[in-house]
């Protein structure tokens, strides 16, 4: 009985907007922009016009997630397992400090750092001429990794922190060298944090538009940017809704696939990779 209000809220807050968007996606753009009712799949037929946005997003979001994992895991590991009692709070603070400033301002700072007077200028000093960073996919990737790294570090850190360190000793005691211990004990036991972090970063990246807009210079176009343009510029709500529904569909499929793969991997008893 008590669950009923919760379910209602869930429906109201999560499902209703999706239903509205789904209905919109079957409509038509009103002459002055917006939505007018219709029942057509024309918007979906037009999806290919945004193919590049989808391919960009579907390349850079997973790539960004993977790079985040590769950088965040060793850092989180150091933080949770190796860092001394004095260094740990300091390093944790460093991870959290960026959250004190608006994400926008921080990303804006990267425009300057990656721009002609920033890193490329420093590269010139060591003889690398005319290296272009700002408004390239690389710049977007750097922004993504910078922006989302803490979201990856923290869940991994938490799961590694919770990891019973004596299990590592047990593993070593039973004959596993550090590498095997990592793959047989540490990694599988920190998998929940890894999965949480990956999903968090991946889902947010799929909807990202600020970083490509600021650091991609309008040339690295994400689905998020397409949505902003469709809703705020062309005011083509039905097409925007169709793009949004498609994005949600792709995300659900990707997450399901990912969780299935992870689940299967965790279910397998001998996860030894070596």
């Amino acid at each position: 009985m008590l669950l009923l209000p919760t379910t209602l809220w869930f429906l109201l807050l999560l499902v209703m907007p999706l239903v509205v968007i789904a209905v919109y996606s079957l409509g038509e753009r009103a002459p002055a922009g917006g939505y007018q009712p219709a029942l057509t799949l024309a918007q979906y037929a037009n999806l290919l016009a945004r193919l590049k946005a989808f391919t960009n997003t579907l390349t850079l979001a997973p790539l960004g997630t993977v790079i985040c994992i590769v950088i965040a895991y060793p850092f989180a590991y150091y933080l949770a397992v190796k860092a001394g009692r004095g260094a740990k709070p300091f390093l944790l603070t460093l991870v959290i400090i960026p959250f004190w400033t608006s994400f926008l301002i921080r990303t804006y700072a990267w425009i300057y750092i990656l721009g002609g007077q920033g890193i490329p200028r420093l590269l010139e000093m060591i003889g690398i001429e005319d290296y272009r960073l700002i408004y390239t996919p690389t710049a977007v990737l750097i922004g993504i990794v910078y922006g989302y790294l803490p979201l990856m570090v923290l869940p991994i850190y938490v799961s590694l922190e919770k990891l019973d360190k004596s299990l590592l000793e047990v593993s070593s005691d039973l004959g596993a060298n550090p590498v095997r211990t990592f793959f047989q004990v540490t990694l599988p036991l920190s998998a929940p944090g890894l999965v949480t972090g990956s999903l968090l970063v991946f889902i947010l990246l799929m909807g990202e538009y600020l970083i490509p807009a600021l650091l991609g210079g309008g040339k690295v176009y994400f689905v998020g940017n397409a949505l902003v343009d469709l809703f705020l510029q062309s005011r083509n709500w039905p097409f925007g809704s169709a793009v949004a529904i498609t994005l949600v569909g792709i995300m659900l499929a990707a997450i399901t696939l990912y969780l299935t793969l992870v689940g299967r991997d965790r279910g397998r008893q001998d996860v030894s990779v070596l």
Binding site: L167, E169, S171, S172, D173, N177, V185, R266, Q269
Partner: peptide
Amino acid sequence: VPPYKRPINMVFQNYSLFPHFT
């Protein structure tokens, strides 16, 4: 010599069983 190279095994306090294994 690291633990994993010693012909010695240990029963840990609180047993420390691997939770992800049967």
